[in-house]
Computed example of a mutant assay.
Amino acid sequence: MTVTRTQWAAAAAVFVALLFAGYATVSTAWGGEPAAQATPARESADAGFARDMSVHHQQAVELSFLVRDRTQDEEVRRLAYDIANTQANQRGMMLGWLDLWGLPKVESGTEPMAWMDTSGGENGGQHGGGHSGHGSGAAPKQQEGALMPGMATPAELERLNKLSGKQAEILYLQLMIDHHKGGVHMAQGCADRCTVDVERKLAQGMVDAQQSEIGLMTELLKKRGAAPRP
């Protein structure tokens, strides 16, 4: 499974690097933003989002593979596969952009999500991006020991690893709803602050898709006599 995830990420990174290079060239040729503006700064919202969301997505992949091996329920297994596949590919895209921009994938000495400072980042929030009722102002709660809001703690991962069947399904759905809420908050931050159009559009797509999946997972919990965590 590790090999498969690596192959997904590598293939996506190569594809997006070519796509983005073509985008920058065409944009300049048709009087769009100059090529120099298409390369974000190291401390920009574009770079910060790509780094932080790559980490956030990696945990979603891990959670999904954990539950897939601990339940025979086809509905939950299919959801877990879709989330793992989608987020592994998106992670590859974001890591590919960082490579293309010549920026580090890990920024030592910088707090996660520092680019989402309420000052509005370098872009001041000038790109609306469609708030969908979930602005980036109010962050989801962060569990003690979690790296970013919405992310599971090591203790929660260990607990999921020990469960099976319905119990594993319920915990996975609860953890993934929290995870998606954190992801929506962060993606909306990029939709508001990022300057690279293709990245901003990806972020808005994450907002829309993950909000939809939150609704689906809430219904799956209800079918199991459970509910999202408060």
Rank of each mutant, 00 (worst) to 15 (best):
A35P: 04
H185R: 08
S108I: 10
F65R: 11
E107T: 06
L160T: 04
E156I: 10
R51Q: 08
Q72F: 13
M176Y: 12
L173A: 07
V16G: 00
L100C: 02
T28N: 08
G22I: 02
M206I: 08
G109N: 15
S164K: 05
W8N: 05
N85F: 14
M176F: 12
A80R: 07
P104D: 00
T6R: 12
G145K: 02
S54K: 03
I214W: 05
L66S: 11
A10M: 03
E43V: 05
S108F: 15
V55A: 14
G182H: 07
R193A: 01
P228S: 14
L63G: 05
N85M: 06
T71Q: 10
L98K: 03
L221H: 06
A146G: 11
D192L: 01
E156P: 02
I177S: 06
T195K: 03
Q142C: 15
W115I: 08
Q59W: 01
H127A: 00
G109W: 05
S44W: 01
D82S: 13
G183N: 07
Q204K: 15
T110P: 12
V76E: 10
D82N: 11
E144L: 11
L202M: 03
Q7E: 14
A84P: 07
S136W: 12
K166V: 12
G225Q: 11
Q188D: 02
A139I: 14
A9I: 14
A139H: 13
L63W: 03
L163I: 04
A152M: 02
A12W: 06
A88V: 08
L95T: 15
V3Q: 09
L157F: 04
A60K: 07
N161K: 09
V106M: 06
